[in-house]
Structure formats: structure tokens, C-alpha cells
Amino acid sequence: MEFKPLIKKARKGDKDALLQLIMAQQADYYKLAYVYMKNKEDALDALQDMIIILYRNIYNLKKEESFYSWSKTILVNCCKNKLRNKNKTTSLDQATEEAVDGVYTGSEDRIVLEKHLSGLRDIHQEVIRLRYFLDMEYEAIAELLKIPLGTVKSRLNNGMKQLKESFGGDIDGE
């Protein structure tokens, strides 16, 4: 698909063109939002926030070819803003470990993993989720988070070390 004509249209304020650009990579956007928000409703909310910012600022976009990395960075920021607001009222634990009457939906694996992950600092969790859940390359993570490549690597190393230690503790306890 040829994106450039669509980006040109979107920059002129064409809402349909902007929507088409997003929908062309809908799975990437949704999964990125989901990795941060951890549930469908909040992920969709974050995407809605994103598209408003994109529409209002796309005329500022300098390089057309960087539309996708630019918009995904905005999405990550929207997610972080939402999480910050959410954490004011509930802790992350409560948001993720939702127990459902009737059908028990949360798989045990996921709950165990989330428990250990949420014990890490946000900056460490973030790179682990992007690298392991979304299979993103180091360079792509650096581009997305606007941090140097070396920082991505060191955060990932430190994060994984701590995660393993966290798991190690559990095994000792059994």
C-alpha cells in the first residue's frame, strides 16, 4: 500500500486518510496500546486519545516517512498518561488481577507473570514488555521511546536480571 499520498491528505486535515493510515496497521497499534493498558477498554481509550492528538498535530510532521514511528510514540505517551491518572485511584495490581465470577478468565500464568513484572520499575517493565511481548528490535524500542540504543540494552539487562531474581525468590519459597 502506498502511504505517502494518504499522509499528504491527512496533513491537509483529511480525517478518512488519517483513519486509513491507522487501520492499515491496526494490529500493531492495538497490541502496543494493549501491552501498556492490559485490557481492551483502556487500550481503545488510549487509541482514541492518540487519534485526536494526531489529527491536531499532523501538519507539524516534518518527514512523511516517519508517520508511523511518530504516531506510535504519541500512542505510548497517551498510554502512560492514562496509567498515571489511573494509578491515582487504583494500584496496578488491582487493575491487572481481575477475578471474574462465572468463567475464570485470567490465566494463572499471566497473573504470576504480571505479579513479578509489576514489582519492577516502570522503565524496566516497559522495555521487557516491548521486547518480549511484541518482539520489537532494540532499535525500534529506542526510536519509539526516544531513548539511546545503549539505554534500551541496559534497561533490558537490568530488568531481566531483576525479573529472574524475583522468580528465583518464589522457587526458593516452595
Binding site: 492495538y30 481503545l44 487519534i51 485526536i52
Partner: peptide
């Protein structure tokens, strides 16, 4: 790894487009 597989299979909600459209 299991979580990655779950993410790989995560379906995009069918109302995504409609919600983005009405936001726009």
C-alpha cells in the same frame, strides 16, 4: 514466551475503527 504467544493471537476489537472514526 507464553505471554508473547497470547499477544500474537490477540484479536483487534471489531469496534476499533468505528470508535476512532467517531472520535475523529
Amino acid at each position: 514466551d507464553r505471554e508473547k504467544k497470547r499477544m500474537d493471537n490477540l484479536a483487534v476489537p471489531s469496534d476499533l475503527e468505528e470508535r476512532l472514526r467517531s472520535t475523529l
